[in-house]
Amino acid sequence: MDKNAGRGPLLLVVAAALVDRDGRVLVQQRPAGTAMAGLWEFPGGKVEAGETPEAALVRELAEELTLEVDPTAVIPLTFASLALPERHLLLLLYVCRDWIGEPAALAADALAWHYPGALRGLAMPPADLPFIAALETALAGQG
């Protein structure tokens, strides 16, 4: 058993696998000066008090990428649970195939579209890594 399990507050975070018509997924590169700078991740962020995860994801996609997303367009896919030194991370991954606008890197150093299998070649945060296999399965046959 992890000695950090159950210690500290729960950090609830949402992320989106934005999937284009070719079956590619959008990832963003964490900016310099932030934790895990340079790593590639799925866009998203923290769920604020009083927010549903879906509302938080819609807000984060607007703030980070300038995208307009209907909350009904984000479909839960999987989650990751990770004990951190001061808190416990619960990261919820949603798939989204429908949005308005072109992604702009407002909170990232770069954006890139990759087929799910190609994500294995990117340096990603530990909590994001299990999502690759789930995306490969969910998007099989698309690219």
Rank of each mutant, 00 (worst) to 15 (best):
P125I: 07
V69H: 12
E102P: 05
L106Y: 00
L90G: 08
P76Y: 15
H114T: 08
P130Q: 11
P130N: 06
A112E: 13
L93K: 06
V74G: 06
A73K: 10
E102N: 05
V95Q: 15
L119D: 08
I132T: 06
M124I: 03
T72I: 08
E68A: 11
R97E: 15
P116N: 01
G121H: 12
D70P: 03
D70W: 05
L84E: 09
M124S: 03
L129M: 07
D98S: 13
W99H: 01
A104N: 03
H88S: 03
P71I: 10
F131G: 03
P76T: 05
D128F: 01
L91E: 02
G117D: 13
F131H: 14
L67S: 11
I100F: 07
G117C: 04
Y115D: 11
W99G: 10
T72H: 13
P76V: 10
G117T: 04
A73Y: 13
A108D: 09
L84F: 00
S81A: 14
L89G: 00
R120G: 01
A83P: 04
D98H: 15
P103D: 03
L129F: 02
I132H: 07
I132R: 04
A133K: 03
L111R: 02
I100D: 13
D109A: 08
P130S: 00
L111G: 03
H114Q: 15
D70L: 08
D109T: 06
S81Q: 15
L106T: 05
A112G: 15
R120S: 03
Y94M: 05
L91R: 01
L77G: 09
L90M: 08
Y94E: 09
D109N: 08
S81N: 14
A118V: 00
S81C: 05
L119W: 09
L84H: 08
A133M: 00
W113P: 06
Y115V: 11
T78L: 12
L77I: 08
C96G: 07
C96M: 06
L122H: 11
L84A: 05
A80M: 05
L77D: 05
D128C: 09
L67E: 10
A107D: 06
S81Y: 15
A108L: 05
F131R: 04
W99C: 04
L106G: 01
A112P: 00
L106M: 07
P130R: 10
E86N: 02
T72L: 14
V69E: 11
R87I: 01
H88K: 03
L82K: 00
I100H: 04
R97A: 12
I132Q: 12
G117N: 14
G101T: 02
P126H: 12
V95C: 07
L91F: 03
W113I: 13
L119M: 13
A118M: 11
P130E: 05
R120K: 14
P71K: 14
T78S: 14
P85A: 01
A133S: 12
W113F: 10
E102F: 03
S81H: 15
P85V: 02
P126D: 15
A73Q: 13
I132K: 07
L91S: 01
L92E: 12
F131N: 09
A112N: 00
I100M: 06
W99S: 01
F79N: 05
G121R: 14
V95M: 14
E102V: 07
L82Y: 04
L122G: 12
P76W: 15
I132W: 01
P126Q: 07
R97M: 10
L84Q: 11
V74T: 12
H88Y: 08
G117L: 09
